[in-house]
Design a protein around this nucleic acid. Sequence first.
DNA 1: AATTAAATTTAGACAAAACTAAAAATAGGT
DNA 2: ACCTATTTTTAGTTTTGTCTAAATTTAATT
Lengths: 218, 218
Amino acid sequence: MTRSEENYLKTIFHLGGGDSKSITTNAIAEQMETKPSSVTDMAKKLSEKGLVDYVRYQGVSLTGAGVKTALSIIRKHRLWEVFLVEKLDFTWDEVHEVAEQLEHIKSEKLIDKIDELLEFPKYDPHGDPIPTKDGKFQERDEKLLSEMPINSKGICVGVKDSSVPFLKFLDKNKIALGNTIKVMDKEDFDNSLRIQMEGKEMRISHQIASNLYVKKND
Amino acid sequence: MTRSEENYLKTIFHLGGGDSKSITTNAIAEQMETKPSSVTDMAKKLSEKGLVDYVRYQGVSLTGAGVKTALSIIRKHRLWEVFLVEKLDFTWDEVHEVAEQLEHIKSEKLIDKIDELLEFPKYDPHGDPIPTKDGKFQERDEKLLSEMPINSKGICVGVKDSSVPFLKFLDKNKIALGNTIKVMDKEDFDNSLRIQMEGKEMRISHQIASNLYVKKND
DNA sequence: AATTAAATTTAGACAAAACTAAAAATAGGT
DNA sequence: ACCTATTTTTAGTTTTGTCTAAATTTAATT
Ligand SMILES: [Mn+2]
Ligand SMILES: [Mn+2]
Ligand SMILES: [Mn+2]
Ligand SMILES: [Mn+2]
């Protein structure tokens, strides 16, 4: 399994190709910042290896083996992100780039020991669930802050957009995972929200609210 | 800097090419288990980049920049080995293979933080010195056990051969770095030694004695 | 059903890193 | 100084992963 093959499988999974949904070569190319013709080549190769189902002009979806491989890469990526934050004091906007490299290290013992050292975390620094060794996901009942009704309360548990600028913006505005949130009011005009975060009142644009995951209280 | 280029620089350094000594393509090829013609190709490329001095039919030696790069890879390799042993309970015969991968991770912050987490170790699990961030080596006054005079005492500080079979042999015979050693007697016939290790008497073949580094007690 | 725009694949090329086989240079021995 | 064995390089090929440009298929519109 080459690094490139692993990256393709991971991307296809993230685009939903794990649910036997067909993902177009264009979508994959755009996500990976490469050309559709390169994706076609790789689709053939992965199909040969039994990792994807590929029908010409129709797109690809992951086979069982493909899902399993994708999940193992994602597991490694997220565990390394936790490691970097918890053990080496990286900030949550710094970890992704390094994890993109570390996720390709081949040693089952290594990642299992990292998992143990971290005491088997369930979520990564961005609130994304970490698949277990046998490829199970712990889904969480969460919704976007923008979809919470007025007067509802919850806890901030994840980000949808985990780009560096967004994460830095959240830091600057003291918005962190684990914070309590109460929706006070919605502005019809621009869909902005008035909320209480950790008791402190603030105004939040729709852009922000639609990229924050909240776990609703009861 | 590609992974392959880094491996070549590291190998040339280990073969002595850091002291402006010329290393032959054959020697490099043998060490890397590749073909001399492949080494020639890479010699040209590294020469183009100013990392080695290459004279056709004469071999290569590292430039200043080449030494600096090689040392940074070796530093990473050895720090990761310490990490694996100290933080993840790997044995000293398991670490090299994984470190061969980890040494190529590109993040200055990562390796500096690992260094800090380990409290700036000076030697790796095999007793090899870890270069500092600015490329300095802490050499140690050590000699091979086979060269110690009768009745001299010392401490076991490193292995010359760090192959898996040798390391496992040492484990099995309770020979570990840090152990005290006293040379009792030498057998002229086969150059074997009678020694005391941690007070316990044992017999050691020349093969073993010539692959163990000892720091002599003044 | 025919036309056309968009998506996708094919064909051909390229760079990196390796290999094999042939050619060239070096070094040792007479 | 010449011959020869060894070392080293060159030339040409392969594999992986990418690209561009051209051809093909699909899907949408009339
Ligand atoms: Mn990430
Ligand atoms: Mn993440
Ligand atoms: Mn090693
Ligand atoms: Mn070592």
